[in-house]
Design a protein around this nucleic acid. Sequence first.
DNA 1: AGAGTTTTACTCAATTTGAGATAGACCGGC
DNA 2: GCCGGTCTATCTCAAATTGAGTAAAACTCT
Lengths: 264, 264
Amino acid sequence: MSEEEFLAEYDPRAYDPIAVTVDVVALTIRDGVLHVLLIRRAEPPFAGRWALPGGFVRAVEDEEDLREAAARELAEETGLTTKALGRVHLEQLGTYGKPGRDPRMRVISVAYLAFGPDLPDPQAGSDAADASWIPVEALRLTAAASQAPGTTRRLAFDHARILADGLERARAKLEYTPLATAFLGESFTIPELRAVYESVWGEPLHAGNFHRKVLSVPGFVEGTGDTTPTGGRRGGPRARLYRAGDARLLHPALLRPSSEDDLR
Amino acid sequence: MSEEEFLAEYDPRAYDPIAVTVDVVALTIRDGVLHVLLIRRAEPPFAGRWALPGGFVRAVEDEEDLREAAARELAEETGLTTKALGRVHLEQLGTYGKPGRDPRMRVISVAYLAFGPDLPDPQAGSDAADASWIPVEALRLTAAASQAPGTTRRLAFDHARILADGLERARAKLEYTPLATAFLGESFTIPELRAVYESVWGEPLHAGNFHRKVLSVPGFVEGTGDTTPTGGRRGGPRARLYRAGDARLLHPALLRPSSEDDLR
DNA sequence: AGAGTTTTACTCAATTTGAGATAGACCGGC
DNA sequence: GCCGGTCTATCTCAAATTGAGTAAAACTCT
């Protein structure tokens, strides 16, 4: 049988249906606090619960790659154009396919992780009825938490797990990539960059050593020659401005102080 | 509509079919050379070409997780029992879903990465008609290579891409995890461990510094008190034996010398 | 027996890190 | 307009880590 004959006879519907979704863990920093984009589900299953933005991948209609599908979901949910998404970092996080994770049918979810600078509130009449940036600290990702009235803190499906994996990936990637700059605008100061690390890692860093380290890693940042127009909100001199350099990996890496005792 | 009503009305076949496969990049080291497990495809598409072992995920029949499916594929193709797979490291590598990557239909492939100690040849009458451990150097993963008669060096589908991603993941993971020990037996010597790094990274390491470094990283290896019964094949004293320690992350990491100029 | 190989340990200079101190710019309140 | 507090940016210094080389002792093969 030739390849052509084989393909002509092949019936894709001969197998049981499996659905594929793309979900996005979108992180940003607002007022020095790490936030994640969540939508409140209007429909069953898990109606009323918070969930990661995402949607089904259709086989035929849109011939889009998984990554494009994730970008589209993110754009829809934030109300951003795909162009405005240009400064947003997007990478594949992992795929979740445990049987029973969706009560409707067998669903395989490809999760993506996105970092972006402070983005506008998604509210404005977009596709998502109820999308919000939620501080990740407000979510109890491990144990079952007491619920505030009207608000369910537990995420739908296995999204708590996916979010936890995304957070760990983000924390790890700050160590050896310049991705922290993806949380900031075009230009930024070293203290602003330090604030990103402190927000994501959840612990204070030594300002002097951080400054020295960032400037010593080749390609991490490059100076613009400018400074901020004023000092900080509570005093201090004007800070020099930098933009992201051309390095894609940091050598040597910026290791976080608490490695949880080397994660034995 | 209640959740129950919704689920009762839900028709999984309302959507276009998408197939999900699990593919495995299985790596091992034989005679100091890094090998990957490949099967020669008997059926179209890509009949006659080498491909990564893998198979379709069925929705209903086997209620198995993606990881279990990967372990099963690996066991079938190597002829190993799932029990013998105990010492094999298995992790998710990534998911590939670009439209057109499989001519039959829209296929989403979840790739897994496996490391194991030198495993027996798979030949013996297993499911896979023609499975072999192939030195990764023998495969031209980038450019189109000239073909030896009867042997196609180009992999089927986008498996060359998946393999390249797996190799890069393996190389990176040796730096900050103790996964190199997964390529070795229960007990091993420091020079054997060094040979793993040299095989995967493809470059020689300074024996003295490597030795000092491995012993100084807490939890990487622990001595057994034994030594090899004889010296090395070409001379030298008997080497002390070690087994893997309990660290899951190496701190500080073993950085490879050539970082490709920091991967700008 | 001798030549060559290998494990293991040691030395030493250069680099990197962690912790602290300081000078000077700047804000807000008084 | 002054002052105390805050913050950026730089410096110091000891401790830890790395890179490169040397060397002693153990062992294999011819």
